[in-house]
Amino acid sequence: MKRLLQAVLVLLLVSLALFVMLRIVPGNPVAVLMGEHANEATIERLTAELGLDQPIHVQFFRYLGGAIRGDFGTSYSLGKPVSQLMGAAFVNTLLLALAAALFAWIVGGLCGLLAAIRKNSIPDRLFMGFSLLGISMPVFMVAMILQYVFGYWLHWLPISGVSDWRSFILPAIALGWNSAGSIARLVRSTLADTLEDDYIDTARAKGLSETAVIWRHALRNTMLPTVTMMALQLSGLLSGAVITETVFSINGIGRLAVQAINGRDIPLLQGTVLFATALVIFGNLIADLLYKVLDPRTRREVKE
């Protein structure tokens, strides 16, 4: 409950900071909206119509009042309610992010696991080389290579747009590539350390097989730091989504944000950033809860 209140407070502060920042930056959004040839009178009229002539605190409370009711204003550039635009984009972004996270966890986790068990073996070196590549390659580069190889060259998968689930495969890999690399490295080093712990000797002394030692005793302890990192990576995944959605022409939150920035579309930008913030906060909340499930030491003591 306390964590939930904290989350709401953070969300409020972020929207305030965002609101102030967007109004400090030079350049009149209305002027951009109207183009080069708009006259003074029209600009002034529209500024008043959009409420941008009001003092900043009045604007903020108006905005907040609307936001609580689910009304994030109307996009300047697209002329539709922000909530409606985001609603459509939300599903795509969520699917993309989930698929990317799934890819990163499964591929990264498995590679890390195998590498740790067979340290310094050929698969270990191979995976770790790949993961270095994963960490150091920018998202757009991975995206373009994937498009070229699997789309243009092999014709296996669609290159852009969203038609069915297959459209998400390449973007998800492009987006998750980076996280997969860091997860693989983290799992490898954590698991290797865990396998040196004393209770692992205890488990082996019991006569358990190496597989049981790893699955029953080592893995859960390895997951503790990994879960934290996964949550932290969520924000990275979101910023990556901006690029991935643009490269693959997926109508998602990231692409909306890019449009909003280009068009000085304040309501739309506020909406998208707020959404991203909420997602990051939510990810951290989940990580906290998961940590409590995984590690009994972080649960509050009720006994005795």
């Binding site: 209770y199 205890t202 082996r204 002394a205 006569g207 590690d295």
Partner: peptide, 20 residues
């Protein structure tokens, strides 16, 4: 091991799995 020969260790804190 565990059936005919078993072993106990020096530090009972670190010898037990903390999450089990």
């Amino acid at each position: 091991q565990g059936r005919e020969i078993s072993m106990i260790f020096q530090d009972p804190m670190s010898s037990l799995n903390p999450v089990m």
